[in-house]
Structure formats: C-alpha cells, structure tokens
C-alpha cells in the first residue's frame, strides 16, 4: 500500500497523455516531454492506460466515464505506486478530477466503479490515493515563476500572448477544491497560472477577457457553424487585445482554434491573424529548445513563421 506523503515530490510524477496527445495533440505531448527533459523532471507514463471517457462517454452515461477515469487512477496509484498524476489535456484532467469528486460524494458512482473494476479484474481506485494535476500545476509546483525565470535562455521578449484556458480547467468549481484558495492558488474566475509562467518566460501578456470562454469543442463536427462562430469570437477578441499568439493548454481547444480558423476562412472568408501555440511550446522556446523538438512545425496556424520572424527559432 502506498501512503500519501505530506511533502509530495512533483519532480517525478505519473504521466497520463490521453488519446488526443497521440493524435492531433501530438505536438503538445512532444513539447511537454521536451520541457520535462530540459528541466530534469521525470514523467513516468501510466502503464496500459485507457481513454478517460471524455465528454462523449459522459454524455452516454456519466458513471461509465467515472469508471474509465478511475481505471487510469487505479493503475497509477495501486499498480505503480504514484501519488501524483499529471494530465496535460484539459479533458483528461477534468475527468480525473470529476471522478475523484464523484466517487467521494456519490454512492451510486462509487458502486458502479467498484462493480466494473471487479468485473474488469483490477483494483478499485481508492479516493485520496492520487492527486491529479494539470501541466500548469506541474510547472508551478516544481519550478514556480522564479524557477522559470532563472532557467530562461531566450526570453520571449516582445511576443504578445493571450492565454486561453477554456472550460474544463476551471469549471464546475466543485470538482476543483484546491482552486480559489487565495494568494498562490489558481482562480476559477480569472485563472493566471499560464499568464504567470509565460510572463516569467519573458512574454508580454495581454489582458484577454475571453480566457475561459468556450470554443465549442463539443460540437466541432456535429454543429460546426456554432463552433466556428465561437472560435472567430475568440480569435477576434485576441486580435483586438493586440495578441500575436493565443497560448493553449488543451489539445481539443488548440485543434478547435486551428481548425475553425481555417474553416472561417474557407467557408466565410473571415481571416484572423493570431497563431496558436501550446504553452509548453512557448516555454520550451524560452528554455532554448529548438522548434522542431517542440513540434512547432506540426501546428496548422502560422506558428512556425511567427516564431522565425521574431527570432525565437
């Protein structure tokens, strides 16, 4: 049995990339691993993981999504002995947090998790065994703003960045008990961890009022016009704030912004300027990592062009 130590070591954590980071979010996975290597942080992949259930399985049956997430948490804690799992994808992060909350507070969910775990032949996840953190928490807790600042080799000077957090990182509040706890903690209304990290990396952070607005990712294909409308709103607002770049922290938001930027152009003749980069790609550049190793050439928007033009590559 593992015991949760009062002083956790976030320098070596279980790593849960999730399905999107093996597909469209490949560059996020690549840049996260490159940043970990450059900083001497260890990511131990969760063995034989499965999908967290995403929004789609939740829509079919929420308790089934809870079970799927709990299997990942059971492997990381019971089989691998970790007390922290880091998920860079907002969807995975949200779902693991939601599973922790639902198993602890809803007897029906706990029952379904126990039943399915038994039938599937693995240990049932025990509440409190594992702390789920986002890639932003991971950088904040291992380095902090000062730590980032001291390791910057190529500051992102003059790069104007709008930080986009999306929906799943902060809502709904009850699944994030550690947020809104005053100075130092993350805010659900005005999240700032990405702002802090990229400011420490030398970027000029613009005040972006839509940082937690929705990109319509749920209906990116099933109601594409609605998604395009929401994304155009986000892109135009970033432009109006003077941003060159929208920094992202979620593969679904990131690919949604890229896809619908192109769709708005193709279908409606609406062109928008901002390029999309994962925050790990921006942080990696500042740490002196090359753009290829960060997968910037895989981005659909004109990220590589922008980075070259600004002499950051």
């Amino acid at each position: 049995m593992t015991t949760v130590s009062p002083q956790k070591d976030y320098r070596e954590v279980a790593y849960y990339p999730g399905c999107a980071l093996e597909g469209t979010g490949h560059a996020y996975d690549r840049s996260t691993r490159a940043v970990a290597e450059a900083l001497g942080l260890r990511l131990v992949d969760v063995r034989n993981w499965n999908c967290c259930g995403a929004m789609e399985v939740k829509n079919v049956d929420p308790k089934l999504q809870t079970y799927l997430s709990s299997r990942v948490m059971s492997i990381a804690s019971e089989e691998m002995g970790h007390d922290v799992v880091m998920a860079p994808c907002n969807g995975c992060y949200h779902n693991l947090k939601k599973a922790e909350h639902d198993i602890a507070n809803d007897a029906g969910s706990a029952e379904v998790v126990a039943e399915l775990s038994r039938k599937a032949g693995h240990a049932t996840y025990q509440v409190g065994k594992l702390e789920t953190i986002h890639a932003l928490d991971w950088i904040k807790r291992t380095l902090g703003d000062e730590g980032v600042r001291s390791r910057v080799k190529r500051p992102l000077t003059g790069l104007k960045v709008a930080n986009y957090y999306g929906c799943m990182y902060t809502r709904p509040r009850h699944i994030f008990p550690e947020k809104d706890k005053g100075p130092g903690s993350e805010s659900t209304a005005r999240p700032h961890f990405m702002d802090d990290i990229l400011a420490a990396a030398g970027a000029e952070i613009v005040d972006y009022p839509l940082k937690t607005a929705c990109c319509g990712g749920a209906h990116t294909l099933s109601d594409s016009d609605l998604s395009t409308k929401l994304v155009v709103n986000l892109l135009r607002a970033a432009e109006a704030c003077g941003a060159d770049v929208i920094a992202t922290e979620c593969p679904t938001c990131h690919s949604g912004l890229e896809m619908h930027q192109v769709r708005a152009e193709t279908r409606f003749g609406i062109t928008t300027r901002p390029a999309m980069l994962y925050f790990t790609q921006l942080l990696g550049l500042a740490l002196g990592i090359g753009p290829k190793a960060l997968g910037i050439h895989e981005n659909v928007s004109s990220a590589l062009e922008l980075v070259r033009e600004r002499g950051l590559a």
């Binding site: 319509g216 749920a218 109601d223």
Partner: peptide
Amino acid sequence: WQCVSCNKCTH
C-alpha cells in the same frame, strides 16, 4: 442538443 457543455451554468 446544441448545449456545448461549457459548464458555465453548473459552475
């Protein structure tokens, strides 16, 4: 069905 599950309401 057009709800985008942004969770602003539940929040």
